[in-house]
Design a protein around this nucleic acid. Structure first.
Lengths: 189, 189
DNA sequence: ACTCCCTACTCAAAGATGTGATTAGTCATG
DNA sequence: CATGACTAATCACATCTTTGAGTAGGGAGT
């Protein structure tokens, strides 16, 4: 039951449509949660029924009309209540790690391919997040922004996303290197 | 449909009962996937029906009998097939990050409490993983083990788990420090 | 003129995951 | 000798998440 809170948190600083929200939750702009459009539309409808968000129709002549959502008082109260609860530890859950876990029984070349694919993906995200951070802090440096700026929440979560992807990238390269090493120096099975 | 592969990967190097598997998947010994006992029993039953694992009854007089499972040829083949597929990118999905995303609208003290709780949890895992790694590599150093040792799969995934938890801990401390700073130096809302 | 992609949203269904409880015997601790 | 903790497994249910498709108009490119 945390998707609802993720949606509320995402809507706090900007008024968004379901579609825009879906974009944000898709690529990874939301480095703290991930969800597909269908879930978001459904969740928004539920939140609206419960009065935690309020939607307003925006008529557009050039594009289909859309509904923009904002968090209500009740929504903020719900988030506050949520913030006071203990949270369950977070786990990594990753196809790629499953494959590496079985590395001793699989084709190393195949794995190295996967690892490099993933490393490239991580690189792309690193650049993306770097850009986002720069945009958020404007011309200030990080220390200054974090001490005196507004909307530091998204900045802080983005920092975690960045570190995560750097961790991913480093580990992928390291692991690929290990597997390549063994392929060349070890006797074949 | 990756839980099945996680189970297969976990069973590759050791014969385990459902219960032992559940332990491994619980605390985080499995740093690559997480699942509850019910899921694992159900998945083991399915895998057995499909012939990807084989179970054998072990009669115990002092404890309830148990069934130990091993991966079959067909199971390994399935894993091999899986390894050749592209994997979806992994996302962080974390209650705590949701809360921090909303930091600008929540009580900083509450958040700092959560962050320190999480940091403590991360520390515990770091120690746990450190111990596991030491046990796995025995008296060799890491370079040597990774180049010539057996069962490096679990070692490599554990390294990722370790780095992940270190990232968690560092980010928690950093974020808590930022929030504390602002509380003391900034004007209240 | 045609096709493709973008905005904006919806429906249905399958599969994965989480919550909570239950059975039942053994072991250690106070 | 009672209480709680551990091994071993299972059941029912609720919710979350993913897969896949479909509607509908507008703009951009070939």
């Amino acid at each position: 039951m945390a998707l609802r809170h993720a949606v509320l948190a995402a809507l706090l600083n900007e008024e968004l449509s379901g579609y825009q929200l879906a974009k944000a939750f898709d690529v990874g702009v939301a480095n703290f949660w991930h969800a597909l459009p269908q879930q978001l539309y459904a969740e928004l409808a539920k939140l609206e029924r419960e009065g935690l968000v309020a939607g307003r129709e925006v008529v557009q002549d050039t594009r289909p009309n859309k509904r923009l959502f904002t968090v209500t008082e009740a929504g903020l109260a719900e988030l506050t209540r949520f913030a006071a609860t203990a949270d369950k530890p977070s786990f990594i859950r990753d196809d790629l790690l499953v494959k590496v876990q079985a590395a001793d029984h699989l084709d190393p070349d195949e794995l190295v391919t996967r690892l490099l694919e993933r490393a490239a993906l991580a690189d792309a995200k690193i650049e993306l997040f770097g850009g986002l951070l720069r945009r958020m802090r404007g011309d200030r440096d990080e220390e200054d922004f974090l001490r005196h700026g507004d909307h530091i929440g998204p900045y802080l979560t983005c920092l975690r996303g960045l570190a995560f992807e750097q961790g991913n990238r480093d580990w992928c390269h390291r692991t690929a290197a290990v597997l390549r090493e063994r392929r060349t120096t070890d006797v074949p099975r």
